[in-house]
Every structure is written in structure tokens, then in C-alpha cells.
Amino acid sequence: MSTSDEQSLVENARYDPRAFAELYDRYVKPVFWFALRRTGDRTQAEDVTSATFEKALRHLRQYGWKGSSYLAWLYRIAYQQIVQHHRHNHRYVSLLSDWPTETDVEQQAQSSLQRQAIVQAWQNLSKNDQEVISLRLFDRLSSTEAAEFLGCSIENVYVRLYRALEHLRHQLEALEELPGEKNS
């Protein structure tokens, strides 16, 4: 969907329920996945998705179109919902281990060692590093959208993603050097 198409759709959604329904149809799954990856629980992810779209509807007029992505705005709402609802026991759910995948048993077995190492390395990453990797690689946001979500410049996202992956690689290398931790 082009930027101008999305802009037009969001503008129309302010007074045309059909346009809002189209936005919903387009983004309900990405928002659900975003929530699922961070809560690790499908029921909670559905709750977050519901609350996100209800807030998006209520605040439709407050969404300021500045060439930014509507999806990134929805992610911000969803993220705030997650933080709010898990304020007292919030943890950053591992994106690689906690949510259910649909890979078959054989595939899981093949990748289990690699997965185990990466999960361990992942857990040693800073929250900032986890976040930028998650947004760009798992939520598949563009650099522009990730910048909108994070409230930083695009250049900053470029650098942060590169350095976060560097940190992850360093963590993996460190694990390989530990006795009994060789996974490759």
C-alpha cells in the first residue's frame, strides 16, 4: 500500500466506517502478531489487539499524518497497552522462545541447538537492542516505521540495528567459547 493510499484511507476513516473497517482488515493481524510476540499468550494478545483498535478509533483525530506509518502508530498504542496491562509484572518476552511457532517437529529438532544458543544470547542483549531487532526483523517494520515507533531518526535506526546485531553476534561468540556451550 502506498503512502498516499494509506494517508487517504486514514483521512477517510475519520468519517467513513468502511474506510476504518479497511484499516482494521489490513492491520489486525500485524497488531495481533506484535502483541503475541511480546506477551507470549494468545488470549492476552487478543485483549491487546481489541484495546488497540478501540483506542485507535477513539483517537482517530489525534493521529497526525506526517508521512508516518499508521501501522507504527498502532504498534505504539499496542505497546503502551502491553506495558500498561503488565505494569507490575512486565517482562520483555523472548521473541524466539516463548511464542508458539508452527514449524514442524523435524524442523524444530534441527534448529533446536541454534535456537537455544540464540535465545541465550538474546536474553543477554539490552532491551534497546532487543527492541530494534524485533521491530525490524520480526515485526518487519521498515526503518522509517521503526524510527516512528521508537521516536528517533531513521539514521539512528540504521545504526542501532547494526550495532544490536553486532552485540548479538558477540554474545553468540562468547557462548561458543564457554566449555560445554558449543552449539555450532
Partner: peptide
Amino acid sequence: LQNLSPTPDG
């Protein structure tokens, strides 16, 4: 990383 984290069911 992307291969290890396929898109879950909607």
C-alpha cells in the same frame, strides 16, 4: 533470526 521466528498464526 527471521528464519527462527516464522510468522505465527493470526
